[in-house]
Protein backbone atom coordinates (compact mmCIF):
# COMPACT_ATOMS: atom_id res chain seq x y z
CA UNK A 1 0.00 0.00 0.00
CA UNK A 2 1.47 3.30 -1.00
CA UNK A 3 1.90 5.91 1.68
CA UNK A 4 0.11 8.52 -0.38
CA UNK A 5 -3.22 6.70 -0.02
CA UNK A 6 -3.01 5.97 3.70
CA UNK A 7 -5.04 7.91 6.20
CA UNK A 8 -3.04 10.34 8.28
CA UNK A 9 -3.11 8.22 11.43
CA UNK A 10 -1.66 5.24 9.60
CA UNK A 11 1.03 7.47 8.16
CA UNK A 12 1.77 8.49 11.71
CA UNK A 13 2.13 4.86 12.77
CA UNK A 14 4.53 4.28 9.89
CA UNK A 15 6.57 7.31 10.87
CA UNK A 16 6.75 6.22 14.50
CA UNK A 17 7.78 2.71 13.54
CA UNK A 18 10.55 4.07 11.33
CA UNK A 19 11.77 6.24 14.17
CA UNK A 20 11.75 3.26 16.53
CA UNK A 21 13.91 1.44 14.00
CA UNK A 22 16.29 4.36 13.90
CA UNK A 23 16.52 4.38 17.69
CA UNK A 24 17.40 0.70 17.60
CA UNK A 25 20.39 1.58 15.46
CA UNK A 26 21.35 4.40 17.79
CA UNK A 27 21.11 1.97 20.68
CA UNK A 28 23.31 -0.46 18.78
CA UNK A 29 26.09 2.05 18.27
CA UNK A 30 25.75 4.14 21.42
CA UNK A 31 28.81 3.65 23.56
CA UNK A 32 27.72 5.58 26.66
CA UNK A 33 25.53 3.58 29.01
CA UNK A 34 23.50 6.48 30.36
CA UNK A 35 22.79 7.84 26.89
CA UNK A 36 21.83 4.35 25.75
CA UNK A 37 19.31 4.10 28.59
CA UNK A 38 17.79 7.39 27.47
CA UNK A 39 17.56 6.14 23.91
CA UNK A 40 15.82 3.04 25.18
CA UNK A 41 13.35 5.18 27.10
CA UNK A 42 12.57 7.14 23.95
CA UNK A 43 12.02 3.94 22.05
CA UNK A 44 9.58 2.82 24.72
CA UNK A 45 7.77 6.11 24.40
CA UNK A 46 7.56 5.65 20.63
CA UNK A 47 6.09 2.18 21.02
CA UNK A 48 3.58 3.61 23.47
CA UNK A 49 2.72 6.31 20.96
CA UNK A 50 2.19 3.67 18.26
CA UNK A 51 -0.14 1.81 20.60
CA UNK A 52 -2.03 4.97 21.33
CA UNK A 53 -2.39 5.81 17.63
CA UNK A 54 -3.59 2.32 16.80
CA UNK A 55 -6.08 2.69 19.64
CA UNK A 56 -7.32 5.92 18.07
CA UNK A 57 -7.88 4.26 14.69
CA UNK A 58 -9.21 0.93 15.91
CA UNK A 59 -11.98 -0.16 18.16
CA UNK A 60 -9.95 -2.01 20.73
CA UNK A 61 -10.56 0.08 23.82
CA UNK A 62 -8.11 -1.76 25.97
CA UNK A 63 -5.27 -0.47 23.77
CA UNK A 64 -5.51 2.88 25.54
CA UNK A 65 -4.78 1.08 28.73
CA UNK A 66 -1.86 -0.83 27.29
CA UNK A 67 -0.48 2.38 25.78
CA UNK A 68 -0.42 3.95 29.22
CA UNK A 69 1.02 0.77 30.70
CA UNK A 70 3.79 0.72 28.08
CA UNK A 71 4.58 4.35 28.63
CA UNK A 72 4.87 3.97 32.38
CA UNK A 73 6.75 0.71 32.24
CA UNK A 74 9.12 1.12 29.31
CA UNK A 75 9.60 4.81 29.06
CA UNK A 76 9.74 5.60 32.76
CA UNK A 77 9.97 2.75 35.23
CA UNK A 78 12.51 0.42 33.62
CA UNK A 79 14.80 3.23 32.43
CA UNK A 80 14.63 4.70 35.93
CA UNK A 81 15.54 1.36 37.48
CA UNK A 82 18.39 0.89 35.02
CA UNK A 83 19.59 4.38 35.66
CA UNK A 84 19.60 3.75 39.39
CA UNK A 85 21.45 0.50 38.90
CA UNK A 86 24.08 2.17 36.76
CA UNK A 87 24.55 4.85 39.38
CA UNK A 88 24.83 2.34 42.19
CA UNK A 89 27.32 0.32 40.19
CA UNK A 90 29.30 3.48 39.51
CA UNK A 91 29.07 3.12 35.74
CA UNK A 92 27.75 6.60 34.82
CA UNK A 93 30.87 7.47 32.89
CA UNK A 94 31.35 4.03 31.47
CA UNK A 95 31.87 3.91 27.71
CA UNK A 96 32.38 0.83 25.71
CA UNK A 97 34.38 0.70 22.53
CA UNK A 98 32.82 -1.26 19.73
CA UNK A 99 35.55 -2.75 17.57
CA UNK A 100 34.12 -1.77 14.20
CA UNK A 101 31.03 0.36 14.74
CA UNK A 102 30.49 0.96 11.03
CA UNK A 103 30.50 -2.76 10.28
CA UNK A 104 28.10 -3.51 13.11
CA UNK A 105 25.73 -0.85 11.83
CA UNK A 106 25.97 -2.24 8.31
CA UNK A 107 25.17 -5.68 9.68
CA UNK A 108 22.09 -4.08 11.22
CA UNK A 109 21.12 -2.66 7.82
CA UNK A 110 21.53 -6.10 6.30
CA UNK A 111 19.23 -7.49 9.00
CA UNK A 112 16.58 -4.94 8.07
CA UNK A 113 16.71 -6.02 4.44
CA UNK A 114 16.66 -9.65 5.51
CA UNK A 115 13.58 -9.21 7.65
CA UNK A 116 11.87 -7.41 4.81
CA UNK A 117 12.70 -10.35 2.55
CA UNK A 118 11.25 -12.71 5.16
CA UNK A 119 7.88 -11.01 5.31
CA UNK A 120 7.58 -10.46 1.54
CA UNK A 121 5.51 -13.63 0.96
CA UNK A 122 2.63 -12.07 2.90
CA UNK A 123 1.25 -10.66 -0.29
CA UNK A 124 -2.43 -10.13 0.47
CA UNK A 125 -3.21 -6.53 -0.36
CA UNK A 126 -5.12 -5.93 2.82
CA UNK A 127 -2.13 -6.98 4.84
CA UNK A 128 0.39 -4.73 3.06
CA UNK A 129 0.37 -2.11 5.76
CA UNK A 130 0.62 -4.65 8.55
CA UNK A 131 3.26 -6.60 6.71
CA UNK A 132 5.54 -3.62 6.39
CA UNK A 133 5.22 -2.79 10.06
CA UNK A 134 5.93 -6.41 10.90
CA UNK A 135 9.11 -6.20 8.81
CA UNK A 136 10.21 -3.29 10.95
CA UNK A 137 9.27 -5.08 14.17
CA UNK A 138 11.20 -8.15 13.15
CA UNK A 139 14.17 -5.93 12.38
CA UNK A 140 13.89 -4.44 15.88
CA UNK A 141 14.01 -7.94 17.37
CA UNK A 142 16.99 -8.99 15.27
CA UNK A 143 18.91 -5.81 15.93
CA UNK A 144 18.29 -6.25 19.66
CA UNK A 145 19.79 -9.70 19.39
CA UNK A 146 22.69 -8.36 17.33
CA UNK A 147 23.31 -5.85 20.09
CA UNK A 148 23.45 -8.63 22.66
CA UNK A 149 25.98 -10.42 20.47
CA UNK A 150 28.30 -7.48 20.00
CA UNK A 151 28.16 -5.80 23.39
CA UNK A 152 30.34 -6.97 26.23
CA UNK A 153 28.69 -4.95 28.92
CA UNK A 154 25.92 -6.69 30.86
CA UNK A 155 23.76 -3.57 31.19
CA UNK A 156 24.00 -2.98 27.44
CA UNK A 157 22.92 -6.56 26.88
CA UNK A 158 19.87 -6.02 29.03
CA UNK A 159 19.06 -2.98 26.90
CA UNK A 160 19.32 -5.15 23.80
CA UNK A 161 16.99 -7.69 25.38
CA UNK A 162 14.46 -5.04 26.33
CA UNK A 163 14.49 -3.51 22.85
CA UNK A 164 13.79 -6.97 21.43
CA UNK A 165 10.70 -6.98 23.58
CA UNK A 166 9.80 -3.58 22.13
CA UNK A 167 9.91 -5.12 18.67
CA UNK A 168 7.66 -7.98 19.66
CA UNK A 169 5.20 -5.61 21.23
CA UNK A 170 5.17 -3.41 18.14
CA UNK A 171 4.41 -6.42 15.98
CA UNK A 172 1.58 -7.48 18.27
CA UNK A 173 0.04 -4.04 18.38
CA UNK A 174 0.14 -3.37 14.67
CA UNK A 175 -0.71 -6.85 13.44
CA UNK A 176 -3.56 -7.87 15.70
CA UNK A 177 -4.40 -4.64 17.48
CA UNK A 178 -2.69 -5.90 20.59
CA UNK A 179 -2.80 -9.04 22.64
CA UNK A 180 -5.55 -9.78 25.12
CA UNK A 181 -5.19 -7.62 28.18
CA UNK A 182 -4.35 -10.53 30.44
CA UNK A 183 -1.43 -11.56 28.29
CA UNK A 184 -0.16 -8.03 28.13
CA UNK A 185 -0.34 -7.62 31.86
CA UNK A 186 1.50 -10.88 32.25
CA UNK A 187 4.25 -9.82 29.89
CA UNK A 188 4.58 -6.48 31.61
CA UNK A 189 4.84 -8.20 34.96
CA UNK A 190 7.43 -10.60 33.54
CA UNK A 191 9.49 -7.70 32.33
CA UNK A 192 9.41 -6.06 35.71
CA UNK A 193 10.44 -9.23 37.45
CA UNK A 194 13.18 -9.75 34.87
CA UNK A 195 14.39 -6.25 35.53
CA UNK A 196 14.57 -6.85 39.27
CA UNK A 197 16.36 -10.12 38.71
CA UNK A 198 18.84 -8.48 36.33
CA UNK A 199 19.58 -5.94 39.01
CA UNK A 200 20.32 -8.64 41.52
CA UNK A 201 22.40 -10.49 38.98
CA UNK A 202 24.52 -7.49 38.13
CA UNK A 203 25.64 -7.23 41.72
CA UNK A 204 26.26 -10.94 41.88
CA UNK A 205 28.31 -10.93 38.68
CA UNK A 206 30.36 -8.03 39.84
CA UNK A 207 30.92 -9.68 43.19
CA UNK A 208 32.35 -12.76 41.54
CA UNK A 209 34.31 -11.45 38.55
CA UNK A 210 34.81 -7.83 39.53
CA UNK A 211 33.46 -6.51 36.27
CA UNK A 212 30.32 -6.44 34.20
CA UNK A 213 32.09 -7.51 31.04
CA UNK A 214 30.30 -10.68 30.04
CA UNK A 215 33.33 -11.90 28.15
CA UNK A 216 34.94 -12.52 31.51
CA UNK A 217 32.22 -14.93 32.53
CA UNK A 218 34.27 -17.69 30.98
CA UNK A 219 36.50 -17.38 34.02
CA UNK A 220 33.79 -19.09 35.98
CA UNK A 221 34.66 -22.40 34.38
CA UNK A 222 35.68 -25.04 36.87
CA UNK A 223 38.31 -26.83 34.84
CA UNK A 224 41.36 -24.89 33.84
Amino acid sequence: MSLAVMPLLQQFVVLLAALALFLSFVLLAQTRLVAAIHVFAWQGALVAAVTFTVALTGHAGHLYFSAILTLILKALLIPWMLHRLVRRLGLERHTERLRHPALVVMAGVALVIFSYWLVLPMVEQGLAFTRNIIAVSLALVLIGLLMMVFRHQAVAQVLGFMSMENGLFLAAVSATAGMPLVVELGVAFDLLVAMVLFGVFFFQIRESIDSLDVDRLNRLTEVE
Binding site: S2, L3, V14, A17, L21, F25, Y116, A128, F129, V136
Partner: peptide, 15 residues
Protein backbone atom coordinates in the same frame (compact mmCIF):
# COMPACT_ATOMS: atom_id res chain seq x y z
CA UNK B 1 20.47 7.95 4.32
CA UNK B 2 20.26 4.16 4.24
CA UNK B 3 17.31 4.11 6.62
CA UNK B 4 15.66 6.74 4.48
CA UNK B 5 15.99 4.50 1.47
CA UNK B 6 14.90 1.38 3.34
CA UNK B 7 11.90 3.04 4.93
CA UNK B 8 10.97 4.30 1.49
CA UNK B 9 11.14 0.79 0.05
CA UNK B 10 9.67 -1.06 3.02
CA UNK B 11 7.13 1.32 4.45
CA UNK B 12 6.11 3.73 1.74
CA UNK B 13 5.84 1.91 -1.53
CA UNK B 14 4.11 -1.20 -0.32
CA UNK B 15 3.61 -3.71 -3.12
Amino acid sequence: GLLGLLSHVILEVGA
